[in-house]
């Protein structure tokens, strides 16, 4: 499972502005709506529903909100780098500034899990995160996200 299969260059938001968790999720839903053609509100509700089970702020400034949606036929990834870190109820109580959102079709099954695991492994790597934090150009971020994927798989 390569990141390139989940994420298109348009899915990278180099400078997302948000002041709260809710606003960040709203912004992500807006961008995702443009990508998928789904309604913004539907996406937002799915993400919020997931956050109720437990935070997707996995620590070290990373969040991986995700959810399942009917009406899409493949996995959609969206990466956002926040202008200022926000409180995301993360497990380590640290503010979050890197967000990778993943939307999956209802019947994605194993692909969905593999993709989530892949994203989580990618963002667990400290040097990758440092590099992502150090760049605010979409093409550079996209290159970082996808190239690390290939070198890790080797």
């Amino acid at each position: 499972m390569d990141i390139a299969n989940l994420l298109s260059p348009e899915g990278v938001i180099p400078r997302l502005h948000a002041t709260s968790k809710k606003q960040a999720l709203q912004e992500l839903a807006r961008h995702a709506a443009a990508l998928t053609g789904l309604h913004e509100r539907t996406i937002f509700d799915v993400l919020l529903e997931r956050e109720r089970l437990g935070t997707t702020g996995v620590g070290n400034g990373i969040a991986i909100p995700h959810g399942k949606l009917s009406g899409i036929n493949r996995l959609y990834g969206l990466f956002a780098r926040l202008e200022t870190a926000i409180d995301f109820d993360a497990i380590d109580e640290q503010p979050v500034d890197l967000i990778f959102m993943l939307l999956a079709p209802e019947n994605a099954g194993a692909d969905h899990l593999k993709a989530l695991a892949r994203v989580s492994r990618l963002l667990r790597d400290k040097s990758t995160c440092d590099k992502l934090r150090g760049s605010d150009r979409a093409d550079a971020l996209y290159a970082l996200l996808t190239e690390t994927a290939t070198s890790n798989a080797a």
């Binding site: 089970l53 996995v58 070290n60 991986i64 640290q94 989530l116 695991a117 989580s120 790597d125 400290k126």
Partner: peptide
Amino acid sequence: PKHLPGRVAAVLGEFTFEGTAD
């Protein structure tokens, strides 16, 4: 320690849920 080293986080899984979740 606040900042969990990456490897240790792996032990407890990718995501965390409240015990009260459904």
